[in-house]
Design a protein around this nucleic acid. Sequence first.
DNA 1: ACATAATGCGAATATGTATTCGCATTCAAT
DNA 2: ATTGAATGCGAATACATATTCGCATTATGT
Lengths: 204, 204
Amino acid sequence: MRKRPQQQRSRELVKALIDATAKVIQQQGLDNTTTARIAEVAGVSVGSLYQYFGDKDGLIEALMESLADDIGAGLKRLPLLDNVDMNAMISSAIQFGFAVLNSRDGLYLELVRNWHRLPTDRVVDTLQQHFMDLARLYFLRHYRDYPIRNLEVRVFIVTNSVLFTMVRHISQNNGLIREDDLANELTRMVAGYMATPPDHQGTR
Amino acid sequence: MRKRPQQQRSRELVKALIDATAKVIQQQGLDNTTTARIAEVAGVSVGSLYQYFGDKDGLIEALMESLADDIGAGLKRLPLLDNVDMNAMISSAIQFGFAVLNSRDGLYLELVRNWHRLPTDRVVDTLQQHFMDLARLYFLRHYRDYPIRNLEVRVFIVTNSVLFTMVRHISQNNGLIREDDLANELTRMVAGYMATPPDHQGTR
DNA sequence: ACATAATGCGAATATGTATTCGCATTCAAT
DNA sequence: ATTGAATGCGAATACATATTCGCATTATGT
């Protein structure tokens, strides 16, 4: 952020700009998101935009930060560890994932589709970190006997698998596969995989 | 394609343009791929480009078609069904996937990253279709007893999971996860999931 | 009330890039 | 050899859009 907003009105302006950015991305897609349009939607001039954001990317980065915080908060509110069995826990997590992706009228969807061009690190870290902690706690509680190796790899695989499978499904939206079928199958795959005890062969 | 190349030199020109498109995308990334640069690399003028391709997208589409054919041919050459157990078969398929993604100096990687903006249908159909046939044949041969429902969903999940997990891993390229660890774990997850007999409850 | 800083404006500027078009060259048929 | 079609050229055009900058307005402290 180029300059700190000090007065009330400018703080509101900054917020309006970030909100407008989300709205424009959601409505017109990332490719058609222009500074002019953002300013227009925010009810503000382009010039003012550049008072507080060095460039367009800065604005988008601010949006991503804000969303990362939202997701983090949402995750903390989920009582995933209270589930008795892993299947239920993973099912809840996947439901949460679908809920997020379908929320905000496709904003998240458009962002994930363009993950490669966006500063997604904060968001990804938030997710990965949370699920990593969750997995650690769960295994500590239920699988005390097994030495848990490979947990990073497993969480990495599972997170990406679920995320992108969901995104692809929502994106192409052919009616051939129903969303709850997909959720069920994803749950089965992930639960089955995570419950697998690690290899005992130390050959690698 | 706007006009059919009739003479030898123009057929070579079209080929040179498609090759150049691949090269530029691979070297500069899709975002920095300009018609001017493509023409330059092809050793041809921009004007000539528009003789045979209605627009830039047409050129890229031609490239995608060509790659879809390559992948299809590569898949047909793989003797996946000769593998005795599913684990070996899936391991081979995943190895093939990594090989493709790492081939052509990252061209495929860049294309998958930008799948959302590209005409990927042909390629995706090729993959999905092939794995679908493969799965059908395998189950017919080994699990004759089970009624195989849900196969579409399973193949969809597995294809997307593996593809995007691999892409994300190669993209971020943090040394924390080794490629062969990832391949092994992916194999375990997929094999475990595909070997699961379908639900017997007919409640859905 | 005044001075100064903060904020806000938007037409003008700068830049990048897809596409066109009139002319030049090469090919293939007679 | 001649001619018309096919091919090739690349400077010029059209357009979209990020960013700037000089000026106008508003807030804050004294």
